[in-house]
């Protein structure tokens, strides 16, 4: 591989890792902070991605819109749409215990995927939406590197917001809910209210991740939102990196995406008659990786630690 090839691989690798880091930060809000077992990440991811695609692509007879709007409007739409989905799901599940949320969330993610697959008028169904442009398209700034910088800025921005939320009294209540619900209620906190807020914020962040993904990949189809890519990988990232630790979520995204795409290079070298087994082997490897982490470092590479006190003692 020539040098520019390696550079472009690296840029693409880091951009993907950045998109996944946003998803992992969203999941960390729900699971890491609050203990909400959302295994329907793909649903929020998909809603964000499709919303941004529909808003920003040029008008097409095949699906709703597109509306040809700017990149940032697309992302804002992605956040708003996933927030709305988060509110609906959150309101329905706020009173459910965490295992019931898991069942409900996986159902909702599949509903979203099947909806996207079948509602041709809205999403062009299995044919998907192509030609989603990067920001600054047709200008001198348009390059994969520029987009990597943009994704990195969004990761940094989201990191700042969730890290502050984590250290604040708000985050303290979420962690208290995760640790002991009856005691948190006895301390005067409305469990359902805080839980809804955390779920919605996490969903909004996942939607943002979807929007960033759409403009990077340029093409969306329902295949991209199978539970394997949309949900399972994100969970492995968060657990590997360190649930409850925002830096851990980002690190986990880079590490696991490294393993995932690295194994793609390896299985690519297999003779073509073994391609199917190769793909299955990758999933198996990720599963084994998860087991190894859970046995050897159950708290992840960067375990959660209580935040530093935000107020200086007087």
């Amino acid at each position: 591989m020539e040098l520019s090839g390696i550079a472009s691989y690296l840029i693409s690798f880091l951009t993907f890792a950045g998109v996944y880091a946003v998803l992992a930060l969203g999941l960390n809000m729900q699971w890491g902070f609050t203990g909400q077992f959302n295994i329907g990440i793909a649903g929020f991811f998909a809603v964000g991605a499709y919303t941004s695609a529909i808003l920003t692509t040029p008008s097409s007879p095949a699906y709703l819109g597109g509306f040809g709007m700017p990149f940032l409007v697309g992302l804002a739409g992605a956040v708003i749409a996933s927030t709305l989905l988060g509110v609906i799901v959150g309101l329905i599940t706020a009173r459910l215990r965490t295992d019931y949320l898991a069942i409900a969330s996986i159902g909702i993610a599949e509903m979203v995927r099947l909806f996207v697959k079948n509602e041709d008028w809205l999403t062009n169904g299995v044919r998907g939406i192509a030609g989603i442009e990067r920001p600054f398209a047709d200008t001198l700034l348009d390059s994969p590197l520029t987009y990597l910088v943009i994704v990195a800025l969004f990761v940094a921005g989201v990191y700042f917001l969730v890290e502050r939320a984590y250290a604040s009294p708000w985050g303290r209540v979420l962690r208290a809910i995760r640790e002991n619900e009856p005691a948190t209620a006895a301390a005067g906190k409305s469990i359902a209210g805080f839980r809804l807020q955390a779920f919605v914020l996490g969903s909004a962040i996942m939607g943002l991740g979807g929007g960033l993904y759409a403009h990077f990949f340029g093409f969306l189809s329902p295949e991209a939102f199978m539970p394997l890519y949309g949900t399972f990988l994100v969970w492995v990232m968060l657990i590997a990196g360190g649930s409850g630790n925002n830096r851990g979520a980002i690190l986990g995204a880079v590490l696991v995406w490294g393993v995932w795409s690295g194994t793609e290079l390896l299985t690519g070298m297999l003779p073509s008659e073994h391609a199917t087994q190769g793909a299955a082997l990758r999933v198996l490897l990720i599963g084994v990786l998860l087991q190894v982490i859970l046995v050897t470092r159950p708290e992840g590479v960067l375990p959660e630690k209580p935040p530093r006190l935000i107020a200086r003692k007087r």
């Binding site: 604040s168 209540v173 208290a176 640790e179 906190k189 409850g244 209580p306």
Partner: peptide
């Protein structure tokens, strides 16, 4: 609240914290 410090356990309680 097991995975919170003793200090944090107490800090959760006061009502009306604007940081909530």
């Amino acid at each position: 609240f097991s995975r919170m410090t003793v200090r944090e356990n107490l800090m959760v309680v006061p009502p009306g914290q604007s940081g909530e």
